[in-house]
Design a protein around this nucleic acid. Structure first.
Lengths: 166, 166
DNA sequence: GGAACCTTTGTGATTGTATAACATAACTTG
DNA sequence: CAAGTTATGTTATACAATCACAAAGGTTCC
């Protein structure tokens, strides 16, 4: 039992989601204002879509909702907004799912990790650096320069695990 | 400076690649014989393609080469062979690239990690378990049950890093 | 040997994911 | 407001993956 910082994987945990969304949007606004980036209507709309649930959304699902909301309905519309959000650290790409998710800890340092439930599709982002020890040591040993990492686990979330093995 | 087991990331390291391919093919044959799996011509052809270079191959690139070699040229031909190889642990899927690579350590325990050079496309597989510490502790803390992990780093391989910052 | 069975391969068609290329609109700055 | 930059819209296309069904090849057992 060490007293290391306890991970706080949102998404598997009951919480006031309304507040969750509001906070994230406010943080996004603040950050864009600070960095001089333009938080345009499409970009905001995409972030709002991503924030509605703690799961990953495919680009075409987002595109459908953009169309309904009166935005352009061609793939680049969604991909460009997503690229922007990912660039700002306001969203992440979940490689294993070819899909996107709102950042659960905007503002915090980044190199996120994800836990993906294969049963209910919930996705939780780990708090803090997820960089693998084995990767870091392998990189150091060979002189590989790490720029970005992908760290994802697929399995069963607490709730689904309980159901599966009672 | 501890004396921990040194990782051996093939792919960034000069080596006798001819021997590398032969060894891997022999290992594949042996393993399939042992497990009763059929190492058929298409499957062998795909593994040979993957073994030619230490990088990841897209399914359609593999498909092209299969066509040239006289095999069927529809996507399922490639995907089925790849599925077989991945199932046998003879190849891996690199999520970040939506592509496939021959296993660099066939027979060894699995839960591989990859280092991907964004410049020259070389990919090296880490030796040993790449599972991230932060992931494991986050999973433990929440009760998430990990079944598979994706651990990948994108950056510059030693050679390209040297060129970039002399 | 051959009938019944199972696994593997071939093929056509379709869905999902992602980007290139180019035109237009809107915002910023001098 | 003119010029430059950034963002959006739209067309077309490339790449990734799967479904469904038919045909071929091994295996088993009588």
């Amino acid at each position: 039992m060490t007293s290391s910082a306890p991970p706080d994987p949102l998404g598997f945990v009951r919480h006031d989601h309304r507040k969750c969304e509001e906070t994230a949007l406010a943080a996004a606004e603040a950050q864009c204002a600070a960095s001089g980036a333009r938080f345009t209507p499409v970009r905001r709309a995409v972030l709002e879509i991503l924030l509605r649930e703690h799961r990953a959304f495919g680009a075409y699902e987002i595109l459908d909702r953009l169309r309904e909301a009166g935005f352009g309905s061609q793939p680049p519309v969604a991909y460009r907004a997503l690229e922007f959000l990912v660039g700002q650290g306001l969203a992440h790409r979940v490689e294993k799912l070819n899909a996107f998710i709102a950042c659960a800890h905007p503002g915090a340092s980044h190199d996120p990790g994800f836990m993906i439930c294969r049963q209910c599709q919930a996705v939780a982002e780990t708090r803090g650096e997820a960089r693998a020890g084995a990767l870091d040591s392998a990189a150091e040993a060979t002189g590989f320069v790490i720029e970005r990492t992908v760290v994802e686990a697929e399995g069963l979330c607490p709730r689904c695990a309980r159901k599966a093995a009672p």
